[in-house]
């Protein structure tokens, strides 16, 4: 009877997965620009991917750019992706308060990062037991998900069900329904289309809900001294040997800063960044988080992602720094 129960429940779980189309825990390779010759490796989450017009960046660099993406990826996953980028002479690394926060974990991490690496990083950074438990418990969960793909993904299931129903009644826009992050398209091109939503248009109720959701995801905390910082050190170490390094510090919305950050978090992030910066003194640093015109909720499609208008400003600022920085070198 127990066997029959598990088989039936697993079957239903698989069917729900298929019906709502839950995101798969596998990396999607994307690229843009010339395929021949050395490439630039783009190491960053959707924050970096959405922040820049990659065709313009590729043209400015005069070479192709390649990246691997998975929903909510973090430096720990980027370090693994970096192993796949073989013909690279430039690394563009996107950092932000959101990406570097150790409390923000990638749901697909166990499918990408070997458990030995995770254990090694945890051992070296020696965080508290609660955090370690949270990181390690994703691995048995990943095994469970082979049979029950919906396990511990209730947010995605509920959003998927709502999207399905809305689709049925032909309601518009499914981007608004995402619980915490945007869904990247499966196209192998680094072009993420137009995003016109603005955080400044959000109702107070929506704002409260999204901030609460974000806060619960990161346990209302920020810390920058765990496995992610070790992964970043690995990325930078390899990148240094491959060629040029561009460190892009990405902005988050003023709403995120106001509701989820405080001066201690800012100081901790700056400390962590200074430490990283010290590892690659020759790197070009682009502080998009210090571009004054991006300090408005009009330029964000959610708490952390820039929209198309924000992307335009960010790309201009990035290209300007790129030209200036590399011309100086």
């Amino acid at each position: 009877m127990l066997g029959a129960t598990i088989v039936i429940a697993a079957g239903v779980s698989q069917a729900i997965d298929k019906w709502v189309g839950l995101p798969k825990p596998r990396a999607i390779y994307r690229r843009i620009g010339p395929e021949k010759g050395p490439q630039s490796f783009c190491a960053g989450s959707s924050l970096l991917q959405f922040a820049l017009a990659w065709s313009d960046v590729s043209a400015a660099l005069g070479q192709g750019i390649e990246s691997w993406g998975v929903g909510g990826s973090t430096p720990v996953e980027w370090a693994v992706f970096q192993q796949s980028a073989t013909n690279v002479n430039c690394t563009i690394l996107g950092l932000s308060v959101y990406d570097l926060n150790e409390h923000h974990l990638c749901d697909s991490g166990p499918a990408i990062v070997p458990i030995t690496q995770t254990l090694q990083d945890l051992w070296r950074s020696s965080p508290d037991w609660q955090f370690s438990k949270r990181v390690i418990s994703r691995y048995p969960l990943a095994c469970l998900r082979k049979f029950f793909p919906t396990a511990a993904r209730s947010d995605a299931v509920l959003v998927g069900v709502r999207r399905k129903f809305r689709k049925e009644i032909k309601a518009a826009s499914n981007l608004k329904e995402q619980p915490g992050a945007l869904v990247l398209s499966n196209k192998p091109i680094m072009d993420f289309g137009e995003l016109t939503d603005k955080v400044s248009d959000w109702s107070e109720a929506r704002t409260l809900r999204r901030v609460a959701l974000q806060s619960s995801e990161i346990r209302g905390q920020h810390r920058f001294d765990g496995p992610k910082s070790l992964a970043l050190e690995r990325i930078l170490e390899k990148a240094k040997g491959q060629g040029r390094v561009i460190l892009v510090v990405l902005p988050v919305s003023p709403l995120y800063k106001a509701r989820l950050m405080n001066p201690e978090v800012v100081a901790a992030f700056e400390n962590a960044f200074t430490k990283l910066r010290g590892a690659v003194p020759e790197a070009l640093v682009v502080r998009l988080d210090q571009v004054p015109s991006l300090d408005s909720n009009d330029y964000y499609t959610d708490l952390v992602h820039l929209n198309s208008a924000g992307r335009k400003i960010a790309t201009a600022a990035f290209l300007q720094q790129l030209k200036r920085g590399f011309a100086l070198k």
Binding site: T5, I6, A9, V12, A152
Partner: peptide, 12 residues
């Protein structure tokens, strides 16, 4: 029992 497991795995 299957319903309980499905509820737990899909909506827990």
């Amino acid at each position: 029992y299957s319903s309980l497991v499905v509820l737990l795995t899909a909506l827990g």
